[in-house]
Design a protein around this nucleic acid. Structure first.
Length: 920
RNA sequence: GGGCGCGUAGCUCAGCGGUAGAGCACUGCCUCGACACGGCAGGGGCCACAGGUUCAAUCCCUGUCGCGCCCACCA
């Protein structure tokens, strides 16, 4: 016997274990079935399951289970990502908390070993949690991006791209995170609105006594690295200054005033200071005007004068050029002005000063010497590192780059031609917009945790890129003619470089494995829009380049999980919902069904505990319906086929089940998880429970004729339901499947997906049952309106009923009596009873003789309201049909349909009018 | 600044040329042998606003207002 209440926590682990042990999750490379592949977006190895994961993995598991039941050879590839920055930060924080020496103190090897240890300790968390969710991943195939196999793929890709000229070293500006002390990509930069100041600084003009050119800046500290002031070529205000020089305050350096269209006369003062080594736009200006590019900030974001001197020397100012002059060269003109502009002592004092402190000191100093024109309150966007959270600094460094523009081209074409399609399609625009304007991809990171770049340097800084040190050594020997000591590049690769290989590296590439042949390209990639650029784009580029085909046919993009009020979940807001807590409280099925029900196309999912609680009711409802079936001796009957159904009731439910199967299938094909859930919900609750089981009760309980067929059909339909719902709510359905003996324990997961099966005379059955439903509904409605006590039974009399209607009433007398609380159901014979309540059902008028118990005035008012409503409808339709344009131009069917409706409403008005006369 | 999406019942959302729908919430009645995580019956909407196209507009077009997101922008 099934327990009275379904307790998920007792059942879920057992079933999951059963599935996993039975090998139900495993793909079968030897199979002849059509494969179906989803590559898991590998979560961070040290992460734990959050709501976003719950959403994406529920969607994936639903697709996977559905396809598996359809007989596809399913591979859902599991694995985790090493997540370079995130993981390194976690371990560094851990070291600090435990009072250990920091990573530099430990040294590289020891630190990396510590990270591996951390991975061993906490790396299993998320995979355990995925199991709680019910995710049917092929666990024995689990991979990790730092596996030997995947690392080999990374080296292969790096070396190949290098040799193809698609990876190169370049010295240019990068986004530098002074906290993490590494370069980061454009995508890892988040602009944050900051309330700051805009300082207007006056730069004295050489050879123009008393004249200044005023620049505005939000970063005064960068002035140390200024090598020009730019004005717009057409800006009349400054035209005479172009070609002259300004004196860089405090520093005393002469810098040219150049004309460059970058300068926007509308912005700031119209004259803009140029700091080529610390601003992306200035860098371009610097290139155009051949300006020196001194670096003024070190890797920690502190002012460094040494680098300024070095860089000036390198670019040809000459080693002896005094950077900080002990006075000002005012040309032939005047004596130094009232201001003592250069202050070498002050500038020297800034060495090793943090950038923000230097900013404050410089502003104070400028104020002191009277060169600060004004300070404005200024709110602007400041780029921050998404991990470190501090403002990034553009910094001139040498890094490894991948030529993304070349790699992007075939990826763009693949989407244009539809070889890969986004769902919803609008995301293709987002993809195109970014890919068509893609920048060189900086792939090196100054971190320790990650794939070390397979590049070695000789004593003359010649770089040898090779699969291994030995190979690099061999290449070096060839070049130098003898052995030279080589030093490996210190940097590691951007995490996305390796995750971009995921669709094929997990299958054994670069070996041409059986799995690679069979499961690449994958079918669907499921992910959120936030990583289209980070990951989807990279997989497309690398997949096409190395495999010659797209990595997946479809990219299904879902929304973000938000809280009930639509706020993004975040720790700082304290509105984070833990999926595991929801699973504990309501069961994995309830959470999964909720996610499916709320996941529409292009919509964020607003989720709170109460929603999950609501949908738990559905799981419970299914459980109770099954209990009812069990109590009434319903058992699977493999010999039954829908074609054998003879009763209207069984034909009707089988037909409804067919349509549900078709709708569910269509919804899943279209990635409409909301429609899939709604269709199943409606059929289970609204049709199967509310009507079918209720109508079946008299027959089942009384063991009336037809009971055997009814039992077989009920079992059949329950079996359909369990299979239809299994992808969304795998646990409860499997439990019931097993309990009823539809198959061996834990066999629903691999049971055949239901198919619509022909039902004899379905249309007639539908008509008949629809009538029963209408009749019962009408009687119930009138009883409620007339306040008939729930327990009271009343005769149900049919006036003006067609013979066929009376025959139906006879056939359905028991269910009608039961559901509509009728003492009898028959034709009205003789006189119309006084004071009866009435309702119109098709051609007949249902009469409930309630003389004495009802208030005639109330009933009159009710009938009048009904009649007026029908009359209103009829009038609207009549007006429409009188419109010659409508009749002439609207499609024939539409006109015909409107005529029909008009006739129907007119008849109803007539019958209700008659009812009103009778009652009086 | 460029782009995208969204404004439909109290809430969350479907629908997207021809009867305005669902779930939850709400109201009333009901312990009837599956289920109160339940049953039955109800109430509730100028489908943001203004124009246009059409025989017909919640749906298509244009504009306005409101909300959200992405990209670019440290003068």
């Amino acid at each position: 016997m099934l327990e009275k209440t379904y307790v998920p926590s007792e059942i879920e682990p057992r079933l999951y274990d059963g599935w996993e042990k039975s090998g139900a999750f495993a793909c079968d490379p030897a199979s002849s079935a059509l494969p179906f592949t989803i590559m898991i977006p590998p979560p961070n190895v040290t992460g734990s399951l959050h709501m976003g994961h719950a959403l994406t993995f529920t969607v994936q598991d639903t697709l996977i289970r559905w396809r598996r039941m359809q007989g596809r050879d399913v591979l859902w590839q599991p694995g985790t990502d090493h997540a370079g920055i995130a993981t390194q930060m976690v371990v560094e924080r851990l070291l600090a908390e435990q009072g250990n020496v920091d990573r530099r103190g430990m040294g590289r090897d020891a630190f990396i070993e510590r990270v591996w240890q951390w991975k061993a300790e906490s790396g299993g968390t998320i995979t355990r949690q995925l199991r709680r969710l019910g995710a049917s991943l092929d666990w024995p195939r689990e991979r990790f991006t730092m596996d030997e196999g995947l690392s080999r793929a990374v080296r292969e890709v790096f070396v190949t791209l290098f040799r193809q000229g698609l990876i190169y070293r370049d010295r240019r500006l990068v986004n530098w995170d002074p906290k993490l002390q590494t370069a980061i990509s454009d995508l890892e930069v988040e602009n944050q609105e900051v309330k700051g100041s805009l300082w207007h600084i006056r730069y004295p003009v050489v050879d123009a006594p008393g004249r200044f050119i005023t620049v505005a800046t939000t970063r005064p500290e960068t002035m140390l690295g200024d090598t020009a002031v730019a004005v717009h070529p057409d800006d009349a205000r400054f035209r005479d200054l172009v070609g002259k020089f300004a004196i860089l305050p405090l520093v005393g350096r002469r810098i040219p005033i150049v004309a460059d269209a970058y300068s926007d006369p509308e912005k700031g003062t119209g004259a803009v200071k140029i700091t080529p080594a610390h601003d992306f736009n200035d860098f371009e200006v610097g290139r155009r005007h051949d300006l020196p590019m001194p670096t003024i900030l070190d890797r920690e974001g502190r002012v460094t004068l040494a680098e300024i001197r070095d860089s000036l020397a390198v670019v040809g100012y000459g080693a002896g050029t005094p950077l900080i002059r002990p006075g000002i060269d005012h040309g032939e003109s005047e004596k130094p002005s009232q201001h003592e502009i250069a202050d070498p002592v002050f500038v020297e004092s800034l060495d090793r000063t943090d950038r923000f402190r230097a900013r404050a000191l410089i502003v104070a100093k400028l104020t002191e010497i009277g060169l600060l024109d004004k300070t404005e309150q200024y709110t602007h966007q400041v780029p921050h590192g998404d991990r470190g959270g501090v403002p990034i600094e553009p910094r001139l460094t040498t890094q490894w780059y991948a030529n993304a523009a070349v790699l992007a081209k075939p990826a763009i074409e693949a989407v244009e031609s539809g070889r890969t399609q986004f769902v919803p399609k609008q995301w293709e625009n987002t993809f195109f917009a970014w890919m068509r304007d893609i920048q060189p991809w900086c792939i090196s990171r100054q971190l320790w945790w990650g794939h070390r770049i397979p590049a070695w340097y000789g004593p003359d800084r010649t770089v040898f890129v090779a699969y291994s040190e030995a190979e690099a050594q061999a290449e070096a020997r060839e070049k130098y003619g003898h052995d030279e000591p080589l030093v490996q590049d210190e940097d590691v690769l951007d995490t996305w470089f390796s995750s971009g290989l995921w669709p094929f590296s997990t299958l054994g590439w670069p070996d041409r494995t059986r799995e690679l042949e069979r499961y690449y390209p994958g079918d669907v990639l499921v992910t959120g829009f936030d990583i289209i650029f980070f990951w989807v784009a990279r997989m497309m580029m690398q997949g096409i380049h190395f495999m010659g085909d797209v990595p997946f046919r479809t990219v299904y993009i879902h929304g973000l999980v938000r809280d009930e009020r639509g706020q993004k979940m975040s720790k700082s807001k304290g509105n984070v919902i833990d999926p595991l807590e929801l699973i504990d409280r309501f069961g994995a099925d309830a959470l999964r069904f909720t996610i499916c029900a709320l996941t529409g196309p292009g919509r964020d999912v607003k989720l709170g505990a109460s929603r999950v609680q609501d949908y738990r009711s559905f799981v419970t409802k299914l459980w109770n319906a099954a209990r009812f079936c069990e109590m009434h001796g319903i058992r699977p009957d493999a010999s039954f086929a829908p074609a054998q159904a003879t009763l209207p009731l069984t034909r009707w439910i089988l037909d409804a089940a067919n349509r549900t199967i078709e709708e569910a299938d269509a919804a899943l094909e279209a990635y409409r998880f909301d429609e899939y859930a709604a269709t199943c919900y409606r059929f289970t609750w609204g049709t199967f429970c509310d009507w079918f089981l209720e109508l079946a009760k008299p027959v089942l309980e009384g063991d009336l004729p037809g009971a055997a067929e009814l039992r077989a059909v009920t079992a059949y339909v329950l079996g359909v339901l369990l299979r239809l719902l299994h992808p969304a709510i795998p646990f409860v359905t499997e439990e019931l499947w097993d309990h009823f003996g539809y198959g061996a324990p834990c066999s629903l997961i691999r049971a055949a997906w239901p198919a619509a099966a022909p039902v004899p005379d379905a249309a007639a059955a539908r008509e008949e049952l629809d009538w029963v439903v209408r009749l019962v509904g009408a009687v119930r409605s009138v009883r409620m309106a007339m306040n008939v006590p729930t327990g009271a039974t009343v005769p149900i009399l049919l006036r003006d009923a067609a013979p066929e209607t009376l025959a139906r009433a006879e056939r359905w007398i028991e269910p009608i009596r039961r559901l509509a609380r009728g003492s009898e159901v028959k034709a009205l014979a003789g006189e119309m009873p006084k004071g009866a309540a009435q309702a119109v059902v098709d051609e007949a008028t249902v009469v409930l003789p309630l003389a004495g118990t009802i208030d005639v005035d109330t009933e009159c008012a009710r009938l009048t309201r009904e009649r007026d409503k029908a009359a209103g409808e009829a009038a609207k339709l009549a007006k429409k049909l009188e419109n010659a344009d409508f009749v002439a131009r609207a499609p024939e069917e539409v006109v015909a349909e409107n005529r029909e409706r008009l006739a129907r409403f007119e008849a109803e008005v007539a019958r209700l009018g008659a009812a009103l006369r009778w009652i009086g």
